[in-house]
């Protein structure tokens, strides 16, 4: 069965292109919608399952090309919650593929460590069959401390579901008294998403020529460069990837400007918010200046928010940890 680490040789012209691209900005985090496996299967008159398998093989290749370029984080859309609506046969086939591939990944433990890959699975994992949850939990807990390369697999994911879950977590945090409702900000909501520990993707690639986001990372890609490529995913080549990078480099300055503008707005809003709250709470008799009090307040708020984010992080870690522990127990 095909490996997660294909290690293909690079030709001299690939190496030259990489050096050339290296002189521009390289995206750190790339998100990919791997669309077109089924159309590829129809086009080449193969079974759907084979199309999906080819799609998986392509993913392993692309991950390696990304590492070659210096892209250290990749987020892929493997399975949407909407995909459960497909025919039972196809859903089963996709689940079987996931089962096999995650198992295979655990068989390649040494490679995971060698490459230093951290694999995260983002989405409503509890919607998946139990045995798949167990394998996923095993992979996630095994690789969670690696930092050299990060692969986020969005599985049983939609962006709206993610935002809704984040809002629920925040509401719960507020009712538990971990944070105040006035602490809710763009930064907090962003960190409460499944992708909370990653920076937003710099570049989003969608293959097969469709020009939609299909409920994928809607919040996170608000300021990302979009590259819609007219090629079916199994036919995606190094050159397409290089093209996407060039496209990103051409857009980089303008994107950066918009991002900075948004960040400046966020900081301004946060400060205004802090001052407003402090002004409301302050006593007439208070001797300290409002600036000192506001600074202290901002400090406390940051602590609350950081603690809450940490709490959420631990909660998600624990979710996978518990499943992995349970499956180990049942095996022995």
């Amino acid at each position: 069965m095909s490996t997660w680490f294909p290690e293909q040789p690079k030709a001299w012209y690939h190496r030259m292109c990489l050096r050339i691209l290296g002189f521009g900005q390289i995206p750190k985090h790339v998100a990919v919608i791997m669309d077109g496996n089924r159309r590829f299967a129809v086009k080449n008159s193969m079974e759907r399952a084979e199309g999906h398998l080819k799609g998986f093989d392509k993913l392993t290749e692309v991950l390696e090309w990304c590492l070659d370029i210096g892209i250290t984080e990749v987020t892929v859309y493997a399975f949407s919650i909407e995909n459960f609506k497909r025919s039972k046969a196809e859903v089963d086939c996709l689940m079987e593929l996931a089962r096999k591939k995650f198992k295979r990944l655990m068989e390649e433990k040494d490679k995971i460590q060698e490459y230093g890959v951290c694999v995260r699975v983002l989405g409503n994992v509890s919607l998946l069959p139990n045995d798949i949850q167990e394998i996923i939990a095993e992979v996630v807990t095994y690789s969670k401390d690696n930092t050299r390369a990060i692969l986020n697999v969005c599985f049983a994911y939609t962006s709206r579901d993610e935002m809704c879950t984040a809002m629920k977590e925040i509401a719960e945090g507020v009712s538990l008294g971990l944070i105040k409702d006035s602490d809710v900000s763009e930064a907090l909501l962003e960190k409460s998403l499944y992708t909370g520990s990653s920076p937003n993707p710099d570049l989003l690639v969608r293959t097969s020529g469709e020009v939609r986001l299909s409920d994928f990372l809607l919040w996170q890609t608000a300021y990302s460069c979009l590259a819609f490529v007219k090629v079916l995913w199994p036919e995606f080549s190094r050159w397409h990837l290089y093209g996407c990078i060039l496209h990103y480099q051409r857009n980089y300055k303008q994107l950066q400007k918009a991002k900075e503008q948004n960040e400046a707005d966020q900081i301004r809003l946060q400060r205004e918010n802090d001052y407003e709250i402090v002004a409301q709470q302050m006593d007439q008799s208070e001797t300290e200046s409002i600036h000192t009090v506001a600074k202290q307040y901002a400090n406390d708020r940051e602590n609350r928010v950081n603690n809450f984010v940490q709490y959420l992080h631990n909660k998600r870690d624990k979710f996978f940890h518990d499943i992995a522990a349970k499956s180990k127990k049942s095996m022995t």
Binding site: R160, D161, M163, C164, A166, M167, K168, I170, A171, E172, G173, V174, S175, D181, S182, V184, S185, E186, L189, W219, A222, L269
Partner: peptide, 30 residues
């Protein structure tokens, strides 16, 4: 994004003051 932040804030307030249940925060409701 800021509209979503405002919404999250309002929902949290409602849940904290028991005007709304946590399970009532659904995609449909948002």
């Amino acid at each position: 994004r800021r509209e979503l932040v405002k919404l999250a804030q309002n929902l949290s307030r409602e849940v904290a003051t028991h005007q709304r249940k946590l399970e009532d925060i659904t995609i449909q409701h948002i």
